[in-house]
């Protein structure tokens, strides 16, 4: 089903090296990741249970698509490297005086599909929790739900909806980036509020935490949208065949 392009291979190698070199210049930032010990054990366990079917779905989809198109698996790996780097790339937000990071799952969902993006997020988050003191192993399930499930599915959903409404792919990719970023932080707010609200109202605490994210994530979400649209445009013009094969046959499930 999928054709093998020399240009595509060239692009994938360039992308891989760019990703690896980016690691050199990046330092981790702690943002939407829920740190070790913050969630009580029962809540941490619940989010693992919620994340598990999405992970299974993602692994299954990667296997099926890889059988149909051998180039799909290395491409998924490269997009995974990009998600790993983007999700620990510190960006200072002058208005807020804080740093935060984009999530990259909106772009990944457009390129490889939302369910495989959950798997990519889980790999990136596990590596960050193990080696970068970023996030936590006990809170991994919650972090997968925020970045992988909420970010990827809502980002992809808005992209799909925008395309169905006849909006250009570039604008749709921008919207996917913005929505995936904001959805990730909204989900983080909900997870924190649900576990920590105690006697207070869940929705009042959710609103408070969400509002606290706004000064940083509002501009950063727009930046992530621009990043997603730029990356989409670059790939679309450089290797249009890739978009056609990945999105139409692979990513649209």
């Amino acid at each position: 089903m999928m054709v093998c392009f020399s240009g595509q291979r060239h692009f994938l190698r360039l992308l891989s090296v760019a990703s690896l070199l980016l690691i050199v210049s990046s330092t981790p930032v702690w943002a939407m990741h829920i740190s070790e010990g913050i969630l009580p054990a029962n809540w941490a366990g619940l989010w693992f249970v919620i994340a598990a079917p999405f992970l299974y779905w993602g692994i299954r989809e990667i296997k099926i698509k890889s059988r149909k198109a051998p180039q799909y698996k290395p491409f998924v790996a490269l997009v995974g490297a990009a998600v790993f780097i983007i999700s620990c790339m510190p960006i200072p937000v002058p208005v807020a005086g804080t740093c935060s990071h984009p999530v990259g799952t909106g772009l990944a969902a457009i390129l490889v599909g939302p369910a495989p993006t959950v798997v990519l997020s889980s790999v990136a988050l596990t590596l960050q929790a193990l080696f970068l003191a970023h996030g936590g192993l006990t809170t991994l399930g919650a972090d997968i739900v925020t970045m992988g499930v909420a970010g990827a599915f809502l980002g992809y959903g808005i992209f799909w909806l925008a395309r169905r409404m006849g909006i250009s792919a570039l604008v749709a990719a921008f919207l996917a980036g913005v929505v995936s970023d904001w959805a990730t932080y909204a989900a983080t707010s909900f997870i924190l509020a649900s576990a920590l609200h105690m006697d207070a109202s869940l929705w009042s605490m959710f609103g408070t935490i969400l509002l606290a994210f706004v000064p940083t994530q509002l501009p950063l979400g727009v930046l992530e949208g621009i990043l997603s649209a730029g990356a989409y445009r670059f790939i679309h013009f450089r290797i249009p065949e890739l978009m056609k094969t990945q999105f139409l046959s692979g990513g649209s499930s």
């Binding site: 990741h33 005086g97 935060s100 935490i209 606290a212 994210f213």
Partner: peptide, 18 residues
């Protein structure tokens, strides 16, 4: 011009509320 310690939002938001 911005006054801030440029820490991550996990400190200023997540850990703060936790």
């Amino acid at each position: 011009m911005t006054e801030g310690d440029w820490g991550g939002v996990d400190e200023s938001v997540v850990e703060h509320y936790a």
